[in-house]
């Protein structure tokens, strides 16, 4: 397994957000974590990335327990995190945004350069010197993914990559994710948009009120409309 999360409990202050959350991502797999807003998707990702100080449980990445490490150490091991609201550096140019994300090449993992990312997202190649703040939402989403790829991760947490984007841009995003998968990356996305998740994922988990309620292939989810309706309320 690329990533094994088990017994994850997270808190914000007194609020208990995650309850014994467990999920796995296999080598080269695309997994979707589905759930409505506030179900605990972002908190799960933030916990794995080391951004939730109050948490217990195990996060095993490539066989190593990283749950006690600070965020930058987790990132340096090749676990990339793309936050839900993009959070690009608006004052920095596209190239400078990439520079912040740059890390040394990692053996056995695809090495990314700005040039390779411009191939993945041709729009970005036309605006290398442009400040992040002067880009459209779709371009910013591409930039935030590219920035994380510059760290040469072997697994990427993509938090709601489709949120707030035009349907056409979301379709492009789906293609880019499939390309990343072909490069050998393992990917876990959090989503509310079931249509989008179906386009790209191999397997899915459903999270609701901080607990994992379903785990299975996309086909199994399709075959279980009552589960879908209960937790996703489509």
């Amino acid at each position: 397994m690329k990533l094994e999360v088990s017994g994850l409990n997270s808190f914000y202050g007194q609020a208990h957000i995650l309850f014994d959350v467990a999920f796995e991502v296999g080598e080269g797999e695309v997994v979707a974590l589905l759930g409505r807003n506030g179900a605990g998707k972002s908190t799960s990702f933030r916990s794995v990335a080391g951004l939730v100080p109050q948490r217990t449980g195990k996060v095993v990445f490539e066989g190593e327990d990283v749950s006690r490490l600070p965020p930058y150490e987790i990132a340096r091991r090749g676990l990339g995190y793309v936050p839900e609201d993009r959070r690009i550096f608006t004052e920095l140019t596209v190239e400078e945004n990439f520079e912040v994300g740059r890390q040394e090449p990692r053996p056995g993992v695809a090495t990314w350069t700005p040039e390779r990312i411009y191939k993945l997202f041709p729009n970005l190649g036309e605006m290398r010197k442009r400040a992040g703040g002067h880009m459209s939402g779709g371009e910013q989403q591409m930039l935030t993914i590219g920035r994380t790829l510059m760290g040469n991760p072997s697994l990427v947490l993509l938090d709601e990559p489709s949120e707030g984007l035009a349907p056409k841009i979301v379709e492009q995003m789906a293609e880019a994710i499939m390309t990343m998968k072909r490069e050998g990356l393992s990917i876990i996305i959090s989503e509310q948009n079931l249509h989008f998740a179906k386009l790209i994922s191999d397997r899915a988990y459903i999270i609701e009120k901080g607990r994992i309620r379903f785990s299975g292939t996309m086909g199994e989810l399709e075959a279980n409309p009552e589960i879908r309706d209960a937790y996703l309320a489509v």
């Binding site: 914000y12 202050g13 609020a15 208990h16 100080p53 959070r87």
Partner: peptide, 24 residues
């Protein structure tokens, strides 16, 4: 005690995730 089902202050709502980044 921490409320069950995350129903405490700023429970598992978007409010929590949005309020979080600055504080965290």
């Amino acid at each position: 005690p921490p409320a069950p089902n995350g129903a405490g202050p700023k429970a598992a709502g978007k409010a929590a995730t949005e309020a979080a980044p600055v504080g965290i």
